[in-house]
């Protein structure tokens, strides 16, 4: 059983994670462009601010500071700045939770990279005891223990807040509680596994075996449990609201910071011309059922009757 969950199941989970992520990102990207809906300030406009502050704004060159934009993104990703500024009481818990995730993912990424390099003959096997392998091992352990502890504390704090703060409790649906409880269990299992005897060697060995396509059995029960739960989490992630980490890109770059004006002959214009050909099926009396948007918009005389 343990072999199944730390072997075939993990392959399936990884596949689900990748397929789910690709599916979600592709389906969001394929949504139609929308009418402009930006929200100021737009970081990349820098100190000059909105172009609409200028006479003949369409004629002046657009100065864009990608650096300023990246700075704001970094503050958000690394420090959760908006939460810090506007909901300080949740920030610490949320920050620990996110740091826990970052550390755990980093630890996983390091072990995976090492296993790939070893299997490609580009690095010495961990058993060789090389300096690089030892340093990496230490880093992974610190990331594993630190990440799990931070994540556990953060998730437990947020869950406790949510259960005790009436406002948060009332606005939470059952899934919100489920997600936090899942994170608590996930990080707790991680902490258990990393603080047990010799998890690093087992993780390295197992990762190598997974890469070879011949998964072995993970001797430690706590590690097997942590791996199973991690797989479950990875498979669930793209389909859950926790996928906001990826959705945020679209929130900001495609909506709140998108002030791209339309120019003739561009893809934007072609797309919009296409949307206006869609038939509309809203039933309001002031609309003409099943006629294309373009016809609805040129039908002012009908609308006059009200």
């Amino acid at each position: 059983m343990s072999w199944f969950f730390t072997g075939p199941f993990l392959y399936a989970a990884a596949l689900l994670f990748l397929a789910g992520t690709a599916y979600k990102i592709i389906s969001i990207s394929r949504m139609p462009r929308h009418l402009r809906w930006e929200l100021y300030p737009l970081p990349r406009l820098g100190a000059a601010g909105s172009r609409y502050q200028q006479v003949d704004h369409g004629r002046s060159p657009r100065e864009i500071s990608r650096l300023a934009e990246i700075g704001v993104m970094a503050e958000e990703i690394l420090l959760l700045k908006k939460l810090f500024a506007n909901r300080r009481d949740l920030w610490f818990g949320s920050y620990l939770l996110h740091v826990g995730l970052y550390f755990s993912i980093a630890g996983f990424g390091l072990v995976l990279t090492e296993a790939v390099l070893v299997s490609a003959g580009l690095a010495a096997a961990p058993a060789s005891g090389s300096l690089a392998a030892r340093v990496l091992g230490e880093v992974v352990i610190v990331a594993g223990i630190g990440g799990s502890a931070a994540g556990l504390f953060g998730a437990a704090f947020l869950l406790a807040r949510r259960l005790t703060d009436p406002g948060l409790r009332d606005m939470s649906d059952p899934v919100t509680f489920f997600n936090l409880a899942f994170l608590v269990v996930l990080f707790a299992s991680g902490l258990l596994a990393w603080t047990a005897d010799g998890p690093l060697e087992q993780v390295r060995t197992h990762m190598a075996s997974l890469l070879r396509g011949r998964p072995g059995v993970v001797p430690s029960t706590s590690l097997a449990l942590a791996m199973t739960l991690s797989g479950l989490f990875a498979a669930y992630l793209p389909f859950s609201r926790m996928f906001h980490f990826a959705a945020k890109y679209f929130f900001y770059h495609r909506i709140l910071w998108d002030d791209e004006p339309m120019h003739g002959g561009t893809a934007i214009q072609r797309d919009f011309a296409g949307y206006l050909r869609y038939p509309l099926t809203w039933s309001g009396e002031h609309l003409q059922p099943r006629k294309a948007w373009s016809e609805q918009l040129s039908s002012r005389d009908d609308a006059h009757q009200g």
Partner: peptide, 16 residues
């Protein structure tokens, strides 16, 4: 559609 779908799917109920 895009703003509606994203705002529907990704609220974390943090009340910020």
């Amino acid at each position: 559609l895009l703003p509606t779908a994203l705002s529907t799917d990704y609220c974390m109920r943090c009340n910020t």
